[in-house]
């Protein structure tokens, strides 16, 4: 009975092996698309296409080895950062000073929303007289010119 169970488990593992390999490939791809190749190309590790690149292979193997050891992406990326410096990460970590990289675009957006809201409220609360007053300061020369042209071309009907 025990033998049958063991054989069944073995068969299942053998059948599942290609899927496990595919899953590993996907995980390696996901992790290497968050890292920069250290050959100096400034490209993502997974995208570096330099012929005989000295670093892509070893770095990718290192990622695979860490995955085999059961490490997660959250453990692998800091380990690489310790080894190669923060430049190896394709995006700065969301901590310390680097947190500002992530939050500033959204802070700017929020400030923009507040500014748009403020301007819109001010425009909404303007009276028609205020608007007309502003209008009187605008350049009306083209309307005068058009009026003059039309008057010049005007032929009274009999």
């Amino acid at each position: 009975m025990n033998n049958t169970r063991r054989n069944l488990l073995l068969a299942l593992l053998v059948l599942a092996a290609p899927f496990a390999l595919a899953a590993d490939r996907e995980r390696i791809k996901e992790i290497t698309s968050n890292m920069i190749c250290m050959c100096g190309c400034n490209q993502l590790l997974g995208a570096c296409n330099h012929l005989n690149c000295p670093t892509r292979g070893p770095m990718t193997d290192e990622v695979a080895k860490m995955l085999d050891e059961g490490k997660t992406q959250e453990q692998i990326l800091p380990a690489f950062a310790d080894k190669y410096g923060l430049r190896v990460l394709a995006a700065p970590p969301a901590s310390g000073f680097n947190l500002s990289a992530w939050i500033m675009p959204f802070v700017a957006l929020a400030i923009g929303f507040i500014a748009v809201g403020y301007v819109a409220r001010r425009w909404k609360s303007r009276s028609p007289e205020q608007a007309a007053e502003a209008q009187s300061e605008i350049d009306t020369s083209k309307y005068h010119k058009r009026l003059q042209d039309e008057l010049d071309n005007y032929t009274p009907e009999d």
Partner: peptide, 23 residues
């Protein structure tokens, strides 16, 4: 990041690549 003083957590050159811009 590189120009920021170290006490602020700066002084380090970081990379800002596709994962940042896409997110």
């Amino acid at each position: 990041s590189e120009a920021a003083p170290e006490w602020m957590g700066g002084g380090v050159k970081v990379t800002v690549g596709p994962p940042f811009f896409n997110r």
